[in-house]
């Protein structure tokens, strides 16, 4: 195996010999339509982009997102709502849900193997935080981890994501820099830009293929 590696690398190294040094690349203009950087414009831009791909965007004051999520969940007939009990969102959500019958909060507290069947067929929606948003492309940044596992934004049919307006960036390049992804990113960072979709049959856009059918974003300020 390592012989194969050496043979391949050796062929490549031989081809490199004597060639002029490569040109340096500036990648700072990496944007097709850079949105303005003021807060209101960023919210408008991310809303427009997400709505164009059938995402839903709501705005709420920092204190009232749990009530909004629970109301939206009830309106959509969600009975069982998944959340991360160790997530920063947990306390406020639990407090708001206390005393109300529906939706019932489900904790992602055990490793997936212990409750895979239930996760795949017994959960109607999940609520997660987003580490930020990107206005140019209408993307949410998710940094899943121990508190909010990877599958929360993927398996349940509805995904609620709560993002602070203060963490919206004009472009992906801005976000990578500001959040120092190169040194700090977790095992599986994600950009999510709408509900799951496919155009594999006749190039006709259809939503909700394998991932969530709905992406509902709450921008808090």
């Amino acid at each position: 195996m390592s012989e194969t590696r050496e043979r391949i690398l050796e062929r490549l190294r031989r081809a490199c010999d004597g060639l002029p040094p490569p040109p340096t690349v500036a990648t700072d203009s990496a944007s097709v339509a850079r949105p303005p950087a003021d807060a209101a414009a960023l919210v408008r831009a991310i809303r427009a982009r997400l709505e164009a791909v059938r995402g839903e965007v709501h705005e709420a004051p920092e204190s009232s997102w749990p009530a909004l999520v629970l109301r939206l969940a009830r309106e959509r007939g969600v009975h069982r709502l998944l959340y991360g009990p160790r997530a920063a969102l947990a306390a406020a959500l639990e407090a708001e849900a206390r005393g109300s019958e529906s939706p019932q909060l489900v904790k992602y507290a055990n490793s997936v193997e212990a409750w895979k069947e239930e996760l795949f067929s017994g959960v109607d929606a999940a609520v997660t935080s987003a580490a930020g948003g990107i206005a140019e492309t209408g993307s949410l940044i998710l940094w899943p981890g121990a508190a909010e596992p990877r599958l929360m934004s993927l398996v349940p049919p509805i995904h609620f994501a709560v993002v602070s307006a203060a963490t919206l960036y004009p472009t992906l390049a801005d976000a990578l820099r500001a959040q120092d992804w190169a040194t700090r990113m977790p095992t599986n960072p994600l950009l999510i830009s709408g509900p799951s979709k496919s155009a594999d049959i006749e190039q006709t856009l259809t939503y909700g293929v394998h991932g969530p059918r709905s992406l509902i974003v709450i921008v808090t300020a």
Partner: peptide, 21 residues
């Protein structure tokens, strides 16, 4: 498309404490 629905960055297997992956 300005971006695909998912951009999936994989930096390794399930880390200690993580519940899936």
């Amino acid at each position: 498309q300005p971006i695909t629905t998912y951009v999936n960055l994989i930096n390794g297997p399930r880390a200690p404490g993580e519940l899936d992956g």
